[in-house]
Every structure is written in structure tokens, then in C-alpha cells.
Amino acid sequence: MKLCVDNDWLRRQIESDPIGEVEAGRGIRRSADVVNALESAAEYQKPKDRQAVQPASRSDAALGLLVHMTRRRDRLSVAQFAERVRVSAEEVAAIEKDPSYSPRPRTIHNLAEYVKVPAKSLLNLLPDAPAVDHSLEDAVHKFAASSDDLSGLSRAERRSLNDFVKFLSIYNGGTKTDGK
């Protein structure tokens, strides 16, 4: 990672900053505080913790199903799909198999680019996304109900996938879209 500002910028700003406190978040006074904070952050990746914040009515598998059906539509293996989307094959497999897996934000961005829907719509499919309205849930349930795990997509499945992608491409979550 490269800093987005250079050392001249830092010197100018630091020089005019007052001498004061800058602390944020949890208190760190000893080494155990740091390790506990790291463990808490890591714990959040585990399914059991994410279940606690998951809205009860959200369909668990929406993102995984979307990825799985898109991959089948394009007749790609997990590895081939991962290469196209520029993420690791392990992560694609995790998205498909583990409904509570929360992908990296960059993965969401790349998936959205591939499926041609706004990244913001895909964010609403994540297990820890805040619930917004019923139209998304209805669309997800309809989409999930139409799917069957055959090798290629049937005509009905293809129609269902197209409808869902179309819905996601115009879904704005009740707010203005920002063009992303």
C-alpha cells in the first residue's frame, strides 16, 4: 500500500495540527487489548458470528446462487470463473458453498462488473447488509425458488437469472444510485 499523501503534505498538516488527543475506538493499554481486538475482527469472518447480525428474513444463499448460476450460464469451472472475475478460486468456492461467507469488498466490485449490476446492489445481498425493503427479498426468494442444480441452465432458469440480474441492475435500495 502507498500513502495517498506525501511527506511534505504530512509535514504541513502536522505542523498546524494542535497538540491534542486523537484516540478512537476501543481502549488499548496492554498487549492483550491488541490481540483481543484482532481476534474480534477475525471472529467476524466466522459464520456463527455473522448469523447473529443477519436479518432473519434475508435469503441466505442469494449471492452464492447468483454466482453459481452465472457460472453455469457461461459454462465456466470455478477456476475459470475466478480468473475472469480476477479473484481467487477459493473465494468463489466459499461464496457458492457458504451462505454466511462475506466476500472481500473488492471481490464484490469485480463480481458486479462481471454480472453487469451496480456493486451497491450486490452489497445488499451480503449476509451482514442492513435490511432495506421487501422488494429485494421478494426478488431473491423468487430467484432462489426457480433454481435447480443441473449442469446447464434450463430455459426457465435462464429467464429467472435474467430477471434477477435485471432487478439488481435497477434496484437502488430506496436511495439515489451513485452511478457505481
Partner: peptide, 10 residues
């Protein structure tokens, strides 16, 4: 609801 990074502690 756009994604961001959250500072857990500084």
C-alpha cells in the same frame, strides 16, 4: 450503505 473502512481503534 456504500462500503467504507472502519477504524476499530486508533
Amino acid at each position: 450503505r456504500m462500503p467504507l473502512v472502519y477504524v476499530d481503534f486508533l
